[in-house]
């Protein structure tokens, strides 16, 4: 902890500001009363209503499928783009490419969504594909905006990583493809996993871009949540929020434990290696 009381107060304020709203949602999700100001009794009523809401459940299932497929494609494209930017040196059009990759990181979503929709409409007019808007167009749009985040994660890992192992493998005659799959890929695996998780989360959570490119038959979870909270408070959303926070917390704790164990293993290996030599 920092020593100065001013810094401690600043840190505490920031953390309280970030966590009080989330904590409040969790508490309220167990409140039997509809109102946020009246606590009647502890109950799982809203969780029950959430699980009986078929429309919401089918939207959640669609969102999960979309996020899974988009994240998987985004990881492949993002890793390729990260390799290009970190390992291919100066190639023709590098600045242009790096501009295209990083623009979606900050581009307002309304612009991205509108642009994507107009592309799909024009493509359908010209080639007849993709036919209408639905799951496919949502996935294509999500791949495009999430691959940028994967690229940043993978690229920063590659840049901070020593290239000497790859060079050594190449000096020993390994082909570029083999170097990538045997040396580089295992080393950047943690970055690829976090890139996938990031892409999955972003896709699962996206409302604006999805609203532009989705069709009448494909409504995702954020769209359902949005239309219900637009009219004010909706206690079912509290229950949903609590479930999301629980899943994220479990995931983060599991990742933390895994990382700590890996670190321990690595230290042990290093000690063994030193003793052996």
């Amino acid at each position: 902890m920092p020593k100065s009381w001013f810094l401690r107060a600043g840190l505490l304020t920031g953390l309280l500001f970030l966590y009080i709203p989330i904590a409040l949602l969790i508490v309220l999700s167990f409140n039997d009363n509809r109102s946020v100001s009246v606590w009647s009794e502890f109950s799982f009523r809203w969780y029950g209503e959430l699980l009986r809401d078929d429309q919401l459940l089918s939207a959640a299932w669609l969102s999960i499928r979309v996020a899974f497929i988009s994240a998987s494609f985004a990881v492949v494209l993002g890793t390729m783009a990260g390799m290009m930017l970190a390992r291919f040196g100066m190639f023709k059009g590098r600045a242009f490419f790096s501009g295209m990759v990083s623009a979606p990181l900050v581009m307002p979503e309304v612009i991205m969504g509108l642009a994507m929709l107009l592309l799909f409409v024009s493509m359908e007019q010209m080639f007849g594909w993709p036919e209408g808007r639905g799951m496919l167009t949502i996935i294509l749009a999500h791949i495009t905006f999430t691959m940028s985040f994967v690229t940043v994660v993978v690229q920063s890992r590659l840049v901070s990583m020593d290239a000497s192992l790859e060079e050594a493998a190449m000096d020993l005659g390994a082909r570029p493809a083999k170097v990538f799959f045997v040396i580089t890929l295992p080393l950047i695996a943690p970055a690829i996993v976090s890139g996938w998780l990031l892409a999955f989360t972003l896709s699962l959570d996206d409302l604006v871009i999805t609203s532009f490119v989705s069709g009448p038959g494909s409504t995702t979870l954020p769209q359902i949540v949005f239309s219900s909270v637009r009219l004010g408070l909706s206690p079912k959303v509290n229950a949903l929020a609590t479930i999301v926070v629980a899943i994220v917390a479990i995931g983060i704790i599991a990742a933390g434990i895994y990382n700590a164990q890996q670190e321990k293993q690595r230290r042990r290996d290093e000690q063994m290696a030193q003793q052996g030599s």
Partner: peptide, 11 residues
């Protein structure tokens, strides 16, 4: 990592 939409809704 938690939903942006839900965090806005909390307010």
């Amino acid at each position: 990592w938690t939903s942006f939409l839900i965090r806005v809704y909390a307010w």
